[in-house]
């Protein structure tokens, strides 16, 4: 295992628990997606794994090192790409990389090699000597990732690395991340709000909500489980039906085990004289499942 988390809890003050008894196991070399609505505790979890926030209780191992007693080793095997453009806009890419490489204790030929690798992996060669404030959003994101690669991490944490960039740049960055993962079997922990990114990129995913892990599963299992039909009805049925969830006049019918549930539900609607105004179904996607699991209410409004 690359990361093992057991009974991890953390709170900001006595009344604000952020993480409650988190258990997670992340395989070595996997591309692991961390999903959750705003305030779910994703950033706190990543900050704890990066030694930026001290946990209240629980046990965490990163690359086989204990987070409490082997902090330096945990830091040395981890790379962190924060959500913001965590570099100096007035410096060019190479100057930024030199500075952060020096902080990692790199020097001489080793420093040069690591910088060249980071530049090449994120395809920054053409712009390496241009000041970073002149970069497009996509280039800035790539430089942000390049800095995270300097210490040749065994685990790389990417906190929403595609926020605010165009679809082409997003796609390019996802390819870069896949390449990094394949080349050195780097474990990637990827948080994002874009479900399609997680679906495209990750092997495994955990859904967090309210500071708890609602589930951890492979992405293929989840998309299969997420297969459903959405019906818009003339009213809400009085009776409950197994495998169907109501949300006012909308009903979500679970199709992961075939069409029996849908048949039973349509019979129920006929009995209660409720009309089906609209119906949508198809391949289940992660977003649909995510909404089912976390429910659709707004979290920051």
């Amino acid at each position: 295992m690359s990361i093992t988390i057991h009974a991890l809890s953390h709170s900001y003050g006595a009344d604000t628990p952020v993480l409650q008894g988190i258990d997670l196991r992340i395989k070595k070399g996997s591309l692991f997606g961390l999903l959750g609505p705003n305030g779910a505790g994703k950033t706190t979890l990543v900050s704890i794994l990066n030694t930026l926030v001290k946990k209240d209780s629980g046990r965490v191992e990163v690359c086989g090192y204990d987070l409490d007693s082997q902090v330096q080793k945990v830091k040395a095997c981890s790379g962190y790409v924060p959500q913001g453009y965590a570099f100096y806009p007035q410096l060019n890419a190479r100057e930024n990389l030199e500075f952060f490489a020096a902080l990692h204790g790199l020097q001489g030929a080793r420093m040069r090699r690591r910088i060249e690798y980071a530049i090449e992996a994120t395809a920054l060669e053409q712009k390496a000597l241009q000041r970073a404030y002149t970069y497009s959003g996509g280039l800035k994101r790539r430089l942000n990732i390049a800095i995270g690669l300097l210490n040749d991490p065994r685990v790389l944490y990417l906190d929403e690395p595609t926020v605010g960039i165009d679809p082409q740049s997003r796609h390019y960055i996802l390819e870069v991340i896949k390449k990094i993962n394949r080349r050195k079997q780097t474990t990637i922990v990827y948080t994002s709000h874009y479900m399609e990114e997680i679906e495209y990129l990750c092997d495994e995913v955990a859904i967090l909500d309210g500071g708890k892990v609602l589930l951890q599963s492979s992405v293929s299992e989840l998309t299969k489980a997420g297969r459903a039909a959405t019906l818009t009805l003339s009213g809400q049925p009085a009776q409950a039906c197994e495998g169907v969830r109501y949300e006012k006049r909308r009903a979500y019918v679970d199709l992961s085990r075939g069409y029996d549930t849908l048949r039973r539900f349509l019979n129920l609607l006929e009995k209660e004289r409720i009309e089906v105004l609209d119906m949508q179904s198809g391949r289940g996607d992660l977003e649909q499942f995510f909404l089912q699991v976390t429910s659709e209410r707004l979290r920051d409004g």
């Binding site: 930026l52 830091k75 965590a86 990692h104």
Partner: peptide, 14 residues
């Protein structure tokens, strides 16, 4: 601090 550079530096063993 705003861009997260300090956070990144704090995540490094320095």
């Amino acid at each position: 601090k705003r861009l997260g550079t300090i956070e990144r530096i704090r995540s490094i063993d320095v």
